[in-house]
């Protein structure tokens, strides 16, 4: 910020008592726009890192950055998509550098993840001792994680987070056509993985 900026001078002078009006307005707007997506961001971070404390760090960092650059957020566009993009960039910078070989699925890690996280709060309403249910989840989760990352990512953003193709294209920095074909190919791969699962649990019988 420019040193001679008059708002900054005011802010410095009155810092102890109150913030400038613009700053207050920014806070309010930020709370209305951004904080509403906290659960979705945490959920996404958790699926990316598979570690609750890493996920929290990632979300913290994302909100800090988002607040700092909130002025550059284009009003009227999807704030959730904007936050996801910041989170994803943070994730790449912080965690992906020292990650394991791409394409390798660590089933033990997934299992551990599911077992540590099973008892925490989730949006899915099910009885706490429903072990059978959590096993089902685990199977689907493993199938999803067996996909190459570029496919898994678009499926997560589309099916779990409900973003439009345009928003996804912007987030993964690829054309919409690429998003379309990744979803198509990713679902085909996933379908093959889940074939036995779908048969076993009746997803193939409920024809409409």
């Amino acid at each position: 910020m420019d040193k001679t900026d008059p708002t900054r001078q005011t802010k410095t002078r009155t810092k102890k008592e109150s913030l400038s009006r613009e700053e207050r307005q920014k806070q309010l707007e930020f709370q209305n726009e951004a904080v509403a997506h906290l659960n979705a961001l945490y959920n996404y971070a958790l699926h990316l890192t598979m570690n609750p404390s890493d996920a929290e760090d990632l979300v913290q960092e994302t909100y800090l950055k988002a607040y700092r650059f909130f002025n550059s957020f284009e009003r009227g566009t999807n704030c959730k998509a904007w936050l996801f993009k910041i989170l994803k960039n943070n994730y790449i910078n912080r965690f992906r550098k020292n990650s394991k070989e791409p394409g390798k699925v660590d089933y033990d890690l997934i299992k551990d993840f599911y077992h540590t996280i099973k008892d925490t709060r989730s949006d899915t309403s099910e009885s706490e001792n429903d072990y059978f249910h959590s096993l089902l989840h685990e199977e689907v989760y493993q199938a999803l994680h067996s996909l190459p990352e570029e496919f898994r990512e678009v499926i997560q953003l589309c099916d779990i987070e409900g973003f439009t193709y345009e928003e996804i294209a912007n987030m993964v920095e690829s054309p919409i056509g690429t998003v379309r074909s990744r979803l198509y190919r990713g679902r085909k791969l996933l379908r093959a993985q889940l074939e036995g699962y779908a048969n076993k649990y009746g997803f193939n019988n409920n024809d409409q």
Binding site: N39, N43, H137, L194
Partner: peptide
């Protein structure tokens, strides 16, 4: 198949809430 696959993901992947 594609529809069912989407449905399985939507129904079976747990959505976690922030602590």
């Amino acid at each position: 198949d594609a529809k069912k696959t989407k449905m399985i993901i939507q129904e079976k992947i747990i959505q976690f809430k922030a602590p």
